[in-house]
Amino acid sequence: MIVLMWVITRPQALGVATEEALQCAFSGDTRMTAAAQNLAQVVANRAVAQGDNETQYAYRHLEDVVRRLASMPGQRVLLLVSPGFITSTLQLEASEMVDRATRANIVINTIDARGLYAPDVLGDIADPPNDTMRTAGFKTSYRVAAQFAQEDVLAQLADGTGGKFFHSRNDVDEAMREAGAAPAFSYLLGFSPQNLKIDGRFHALKVALTNKQKFEIQARHGYFAPKTVADPAEATKQEMQEALFSQEEIRDLPVELQTQFFKKDEAQARLAVLTHFDVKSMHFRKLLGRNNDQLTIVTGIFDENGNFVTGLSKVVEMNLLDTTYGRLSRSGFTVKTSFDVKPGTYLVRLVVRDAVGAQMAARNGAVVIPY
Results as ranks from 00 to 15, higher is better:
287 L>C: 10
214 K>T: 08
26 F>M: 03
161 T>R: 00
363 R>S: 04
112 D>V: 03
315 V>E: 13
143 R>W: 01
347 L>Q: 12
334 T>A: 02
10 R>E: 13
262 F>H: 15
259 T>G: 07
243 A>Q: 05
227 K>V: 08
289 G>Q: 09
310 T>M: 12
283 H>Q: 14
24 C>M: 14
256 E>N: 10
82 S>I: 01
35 A>P: 02
321 L>D: 15
126 A>F: 06
244 L>C: 06
299 T>L: 05
241 Q>S: 12
63 E>W: 05
111 I>N: 00
13 A>L: 04
116 L>R: 14
119 P>H: 12
168 S>D: 12
7 V>M: 07
55 T>H: 08
341 V>N: 06
285 R>P: 11
60 R>N: 09
244 L>D: 03
329 S>D: 11
68 R>L: 04
64 D>R: 10
282 M>R: 07
59 Y>H: 11
364 N>L: 09
249 E>L: 15
144 V>F: 02
326 G>S: 14
296 T>M: 11
205 L>R: 03
353 R>V: 05
204 A>Q: 09
281 S>L: 12
222 G>P: 00
212 K>T: 12
67 R>C: 03
81 V>M: 04
164 K>S: 02
117 Y>D: 07
58 A>L: 12
106 I>H: 00
159 D>K: 00
276 H>E: 11
247 Q>M: 14
351 V>T: 06
121 V>F: 11
314 K>P: 00
10 R>P: 02
371 Y>G: 14
332 G>E: 01
298 V>A: 11
35 A>Q: 09
350 L>T: 03
198 I>H: 06
307 N>W: 07
333 F>R: 06
221 H>R: 13
52 D>E: 15
152 D>L: 14
201 R>E: 08
343 P>N: 11
209 L>T: 12
41 Q>I: 04
6 W>A: 13
245 F>H: 13
313 S>D: 11
99 D>P: 07
107 V>I: 05
164 K>N: 00
68 R>P: 00
